[in-house]
Amino acid sequence: MEALVASAIGFLTAGGIYLILRLRVFAVVLGLSLLSYAVNVFLFSTGGLRINAAPILDKYNDAAVYTDPLPQALVLTAIVISFGMTAVLVMFALGAYLEAGNDKIDMTEVEPDAEAPTVDGIALDMSAEPTEDRA
């Protein structure tokens, strides 16, 4: 079982590293997601694996064995935070794509992609923003 978990972490990490080394934002986001899985499972595994030993106390059985709850608590918040991080990253990616016209992560060149929507010929009129109909 340990070998399975360790090799799964290895595959996730390798895939994650390969994807974050790509040149486009979307691949990097995917890569970071894979790395998040890998890191979370790794942190979780540092407590050691146990089957059928959830850290829910059994009031009527003093001899019950439990798995290490601390890594679980740490990973739980890490999962939620990694969602926040992914969201911020996606926001950056979208912003960069819409501002610069390409979704490359390297800043060595800044030519917009051919397929990206253009800004040319559009007056940057702030008042032209469509209003949200909340009323």
């Binding site: 340990e2 070998a3 978990v5 360790a6 090799s7 972490i9 290895g10 595959f11 996730l12 990490t13 390798a14 895939g15 994650g16 590293i17 390969y18 080394l21 790509r22 890998a38 790794f42 595994s45 540092t46 050691g48 694996l49």
Partner: peptide, 22 residues
């Protein structure tokens, strides 16, 4: 090259995780 780095990283972290769990 990237694949090489990625595989090295994956093997390393897998070994580390295995060492930890055992």
């Amino acid at each position: 090259l990237d694949a090489g780095i990625a595989i090295a990283g994956g093997v390393a972290i897998a070994a580390l995780a295995f060492a930890f769990m055992t």
